[in-house]
């Protein structure tokens, strides 16, 4: 599958926007303007951008903590993101939940909970629900290398296999679960090898090259849309910062970080855009500049917005009350 210019530029936009937002979040954290920790997907922007580029209007996303790019790719704005992180009244969760724990019913994106693996069955069920209603829906469920060790991962992948539910189980192998390296997490050679155990296909992709990933997964996504079944994808990538900004990640070898820094997703996307003739350096710089000003305006506006009113504490625990 060959991508067109629109898709290629859209992926670049999503990744640049994600990076710009997260760089600002890091700065706000160090300035003491964010309550709680900051967790980013720095260096992992390609997976969300590539999958969003392949998705249709009825598709379902359950992103995890490193997948802000999936939210952006599905239509979240910089304003949504800053309101959420700053716990503002008009944010997606109105201050009821933190960081990337937000979604959008309109965009088919679910608000994750912290328990890893827990959103995979939700993704499977949401796709089943949409297909029950006759909609053409495929799911994109994100999980990390650490999250593949949970019971929910196993239950949900097996459940989707048995029920023939078209879900892309996107394992982002970023080499570390907090401080735990993959050798203490699993014993198979590649996580994608587990696909055989579920009787489904497994595909290993370069998780830092959005264009290559979209080209590799495009036909697979179209095929499972027509012939419903889950597929396991392992995207090789690297968490380029700590688990959160409080973490100095001194346990990660410098050589490993250097190797992946040379293959930074945004650098690769810019090169792909230039090679494909979608955007030369000047055009990519101009795009980055536009995005930066949108992000700057958004965080300043969000900082100025109202916080939730404590008197609303008990509202909305139940629907229909």
């Amino acid at each position: 599958m060959t991508l067109d210019k629109d898709k290629g530029l859209e992926m670049l936009r999503v990744m640049l926007m994600t990076r710009a937002i997260e760089e600002r979040l890091i700065r706000l954290y160090h300035q003491g303007k964010i309550y709680g920790g900051v967790y980013t997907g720095y260096g992992q922007e390609a997976t969300g951008a590539a999958t969003a580029a392949l998705a249709g209007p009825n598709d379902i996303f359950t992103p995890c903590i490193r997948n802000l790019s999936a939210h952006i790719g599905r239509g979240a704005s910089a304003m949504d993101v800053f309101r959420q992180w700053l716990g503002r009244k008009d944010g997606p969760t109105g201050g009821r939940d933190s960081n990337v724990h937000f979604g959008s019913a309109e965009n088919g994106v679910y608000a994750m909970i912290s328990h890893l693996g827990a959103m995979i069955p939700v993704c499977v069920g949401a796709v089943m629900g949409r297909r029950y209603r006759g909609l053409d829906s495929v799911g994109f469920a994100f999980i990390g290398d650490g999250g593949t060790s949970t019971g929910d991962f196993h239950e949900a992948v097996n459940f989707a296999a048995v029920r023939d539910v078209p879900v892309v189980i996107m394992i982002e192998n970023n080499h570390y679960a907090y401080s735990t390296p993959t050798r203490e997490q699993y014993r198979c050679k590649h996580l994608v090898d587990r696909a055989a155990g579920y009787g489904i296909e497994g595909i290993r992709v370069d998780g830092n090259d959005a264009v290559a990933m979209a080209e590799a997964l495009g036909p697979v996504v179209e095929d499972i849309r027509r012939n419903p079944r889950p597929v396991l994808v392992e995207a090789d990538t690297m968490r380029m910062r700590g688990h959160g900004e409080h973490d100095d990640f001194s346990y990660v070898p410098k050589e490993l970080l250097d190797a992946y820094a040379a293959r930074d997703p945004i650098r690769l996307a810019r090169k792909q855009a230039a090679d494909h003739g979608w955007a030369d350096d000047a055009a990519a710089d101009a795009l980055a500049g536009e995005i930066q000003s949108v992000v700057d305006d958004a965080y300043k506006a969000a900082l100025a917005e109202s916080r939730p009113d404590a008197s609303t504490l008990t509202l909305g625990v139940y629907a229909g009350d």
Partner: peptide
């Protein structure tokens, strides 16, 4: 029927319920 997977059963029910079932 479902496999013996209570978490997948309830998790998928949440997904279905939020899509109108």
């Amino acid at each position: 029927n479902t496999p013996i997977s209570e978490s997948a059963m309830i998790g998928s029910a949440i997904g279905m319920a939020t899509q109108g079932l």
